[in-house]
């Protein structure tokens, strides 16, 4: 077994818990049932590492196979990575055969060899193609360094999600990816986050269900308030609260929101705090600010702002229509006419 392969294999097992390692090795498919049964007897990570190393030696497992295990690890812990969305446009050769895992790998490997020394692994998991590209580059001290880029392609939505790639390599990577996937062009979508499932829901328009489609939701929310209210509490703002709940449900729907960690707004507008600081009225210059909303689930958090009295409902379009707009970074500027005035 090569030293590189052994190092990656050891790192992967050390990073996981024992149960997770077994799950990973099971889905890998390069070990027999009997070998997996033997591994289950290992009580510590150290024992598991040496046992797996021995089996890998017996089964003649190489770097390519170990990288497949690394890809499975990334799939299992995809939330540890930050994914950015790219849209593929202009499908070519519609009559061609559907994409095949092995052919896609060979195609990518071929095309990438024009730019880098690299190694590609592809696996089809749950109707998505998971791609791992390991690029070898020479560092300043003439040492070889390896960095990995992961990509997930959803054929039905014509979108691909990529982890961070060095800017020097990104253009080549994008070019190779859209050519190998039979598309004419690839564009960056201003959408990114950790939860791949939510991002794919947003790009495929599955998360765009809102209360407007189901008029009974407003009524449901009314019943929910009544059920949750403590009878000993006299609610003076009941009508206001009901209105806020109805508006919130109308804007966000009753379904759980897709998971995004951040919304970024770049504001290039005039200063709008003029009631407090009227002296700023004379200034016609742009008041540049950047506003970030951050949370484990930012859309759910924004949804609950109105209900808890921290925002006036209905919320502005850019906050309540994020799944429909399919992006989480926005630039807001004043209309040109207004600025010229």
């Amino acid at each position: 077994m090569e030293l590189d392969a052994w190092i990656i294999l050891r790192q992967l097992i050390v990073r996981c818990r024992l149960g997770q390692s077994m799950k990973l090795l099971d889905s890998w498919g390069y070990m027999s049932r009997k070998q997996l049964q033997n591994l289950k007897r290992c009580r510590s990570k150290l024992a598991l590492v040496s046992a797996v190393g021995q089996i890998a030696e017996e089964n003649d497992i190489g770097l390519q196979q170990v990288m497949e295990l690394e890809l499975l690890y990334v799939q299992l812990f995809s939330k540890q990575k930050t994914w950015r969305a790219f849209k593929l446009t202009g499908p070519q050769n519609l009559m061609a055969e559907p994409i095949n895992q092995e052919r896609l790998r060979a195609d990518l490997q071929n095309k990438l060899s024009l730019f880098f020394k690299s190694m590609v692994v592809v696996r089809e998991i749950q109707r998505a193609f998971w791609i791992q590209i390991s690029i070898q580059e020479k560092s300043s001290k003439a040492k070889l360094r390896r960095y990995t880029v992961h990509a997930v392609f959803y054929p039905l939505s014509a979108h691909i999600f990529l982890t961070f790639a060095k800017s020097s390599a990104q253009d080549h990577l994008l070019q190779v990816l859209h050519l190998a996937l039979n598309y004419r062009n690839i564009e960056m979508v201003v959408l990114g986050g950790h939860c791949l499932e939510s991002l794919s829901r947003i790009v495929s328009n599955e998360a765009n269900m809102c209360g407007l489609q189901n008029p009974s939701l407003a009524m449901m929310s009314k019943h929910n308030i009544e059920a949750e209210t403590d009878p000993r509490i006299t609610d003076e703002n009941k009508k206001d609260k009901e209105r806020t709940m109805a508006l919130t449900h109308q804007s966000f729907g009753n379904q759980p929101q897709p998971v995004l960690e951040e919304l970024v707004f770049t504001l290039d507008t005039r200063f709008h705090g003029l009631i407090t600081i009227p002296a700023m009225k004379e200034s016609t210059d742009v008041f540049s600010t950047k506003v970030r909303f951050q949370s484990k689930n930012v859309l759910e958090a924004v949804k609950s702002l109105g209900i808890h009295g921290l925002a006036k409902t209905p919320l502005p379009y850019t906050l309540r229509m994020v799944p429909q707009l399919g992006r989480n970074s926005f630039r807001i500027s004043e209309r040109k006419k207004k600025l010229q005035e």
């Binding site: 200063f271 600081i277 002296a279 700023m280 200034s283 210059d285 008041f287 540049s288 600010t289 950047k290 506003v291 970030r292 909303f293 951050q294 949370s295 484990k296 689930n297 930012v298 759910e300 958090a301 924004v302 609950s304 702002l305 808890h308 921290l310």
Partner: peptide, 27 residues
Amino acid sequence: SPPPVSDGLHITMSVNRNDALRLWDCV
């Protein structure tokens, strides 16, 4: 955000240095 907001929300506002200075002068 205060605790009732689900998952906790942080709102960060970054104001350009010159604009912050301009606002401070007006204040």
